[in-house]
Design a protein around this nucleic acid. Structure first.
Lengths: 316, 316
DNA sequence: CTGTTAGCGCATTCAG
DNA sequence: CTGAATGCGCTAACAG
């Protein structure tokens, strides 16, 4: 283990001044090419690695964005994160990822930690019961996902359009008896809005609504299936792929493979296991990239509270 | 946005000296209780947040551990991460998570970044083709998962025992004709070792082996199923839940619900959709906690290269 | 173009 | 027990 090198050390080794080294580190334009090369070589050979902490203190930025998600093992959030990471890495930032676990308290704790670490920006995944007051204070360096806020930029999913697309697609297939299985409406986005979208669509298209809501689990959907299933049922629209999986399974058991099932999430497993299904992709990956771009733009000074909605699409 | 406060500011507000504030921040024992309380109150009221970067430079540690995993959307790695996070948060550390995407080059880049950030420790998820040379230089502050290395502590899965348990369980059920579907043996752990475990078990138990290997995907397993399936086949052991899902699906299509299928990963979806299946849990979550504990112990000075193997268990 | 100088915010001696 | 002084490694004016 070689002892810690500093820019001073490599300055000596390269026979130049401290700041010249700093300049090549920060890609400062005004350094003679030959000097720059020499310094670079010494850095290479010595295996020198500048201290980020010192850089931060010296006036630079930490080049870190904090990401607070609900659960690391959420398939949808994972896709979003992938999108975020791709963009922020490309922009030279690193990610400090934290798990809020649907707890407003934990989330706020994490926010404090991020602040302490001088992160440049924060991306927060919203959830029902989310406390936005803390993040609104950091609005200029924050973006929230899947939740609305007047004061901080956001990227949301088109919860309404998601269901609308599913319904429209099913109707195009000539089906009229379409039931719906969702989650508790006290969950604003996945619960309430998607249910309303279903009801609204039914009204406009003159369809008779038939729905149930429950927990976000296979089991719940499995059990609720019987409550919305009639002899005429031709399709069941679900608020998520997890639910769709439960419904499809139940239909399989009941030998009702004639019933088309739709979910939300673009989980490839769904269509693999159950042929008569399709899924709407809310555009998780894109949403991730979008939110990251939005954040970076804000960090570069162009601050302006912006609200974007991710377009959804059908997965075949 | 209140301007950035420093310990000096709150020192004045509390009517004490700079260093006294620092002392309460670092939980230094020798501070009069009354003074400590007063300072704490001021900190609270002013919403002061100490700068981590400055703390690091002042001699402290960054209290960050870097985690380099393969893919964020890997179900197994997610479980491990959850375990890791729980432990390191409890120990006051934060996590800098990076995606190596099975690329040795990217992984090394990330390692450099982590070093630059003065992370206290690193946990690396091994993968086939992983370049351990870089991390071995940081051995005293590193732990690798799912890969062997002489020089750096590791937590591995009991790949051999995993298959052994599955086989034993199936045999206990009185089944003798057990096939196997795995992944390419050029993948050391999931591929080679698990296949060998199967072959070895067959030899010892006097069973006729019948196996195929391919890609780690539902589709691959689905297609390989026919190649190992005979009229007598009573069970098919798979190297992972993903494969098991593909196999079970194929069996369903072929109306061979009599064939028991086993996977690895404890994915609840598997048993939910396919009744005649079970899965071995390699102990991902525990492995995460273990590796985190191991790392923290090392960081506290008790450095000693340690190799642990996570015990697996059957999921019903 | 490049060397010199002054902090950044905090932990840590070292004297009271 | 507590305040004043020193330095961590680096960036950013400031002069050559």
């Amino acid at each position: 283990m070689t002892k810690k090198l500093t820019i001073l050390d490599i300055a000596k080794l390269a026979g130049v001044g401290k700041s010249t080294v700093s300049r090549v580190l920060t890609h400062h334009p005004k350094v003679k090419a030959s000097t720059r090369e020499k310094v670079k070589r010494v850095i290479q050979e010595s295996g020198f690695v500048p201290s980020k902490s010192a850089q931060v203190m010296g006036g630079g930025s930490a080049k870190v964005v904090g990401i607070i998600l609900s659960r690391l093992d959420s398939a949808s959030e994972n896709k979003v994160i992938s999108g975020i990471l791709e963009v922020i890495y490309a922009a030279g930032y690193d990610a400090l990822i934290m798990e809020g676990q649907f707890s407003a308290a934990k989330t706020n704790e994490h926010l404090a930690v991020l602040q302490k670490r001088n992160v440049d920006g924060v991306i927060l995944f919203g959830f029902t019961g989310c406390d936005l007051s803390a993040i609104e204070k950091l609005a200029h360096k924050a973006v929230v996902i899947a939740v609305d806020s007047e004061n901080v930029s956001s990227v949301g999913y088109d919860n309404y359009g998601i269901i609308e697309q599913a319904m429209a697609h099913i109707q195009e297939l000539g089906k009229q008896h379409i039931s719906y299985i969702g989650v508790d409406p006290k969950d604003k986005t996945t619960g309430l809005i998607r249910l309303n979208a279903y009801l609204e669509y039914c009204k406009c298209a003159n369809l008779k609504p038939n729905f149930q809501t429950g927990e976000l689990s296979h089991k719940s959907a499995y059990e609720l299936t019987d409550l919305v299933l009639t002899a005429e049922t031709q399709a069941i629209v679900c608020a998520s792929d997890t639910l769709a999986m439960g419904v499809a399974k139940r239909l399989q058991v009941l030998n009702r493979s004639d019933v088309l099932v739709s979910g939300v999430g673009a989980t490839d497993l769904l269509a693999f296991i159950f042929p008569n299904t399709f899924s709407i992709d809310p555009g998780y990956y894109s949403a991730g990239k979008t939110s990251a771009h939005l954040l970076i733009q804000q960090l570069q000074g162009k601050y302006e509270v912006t609200h974007l909605t991710q377009k959804a699409s059908i997965t075949r």
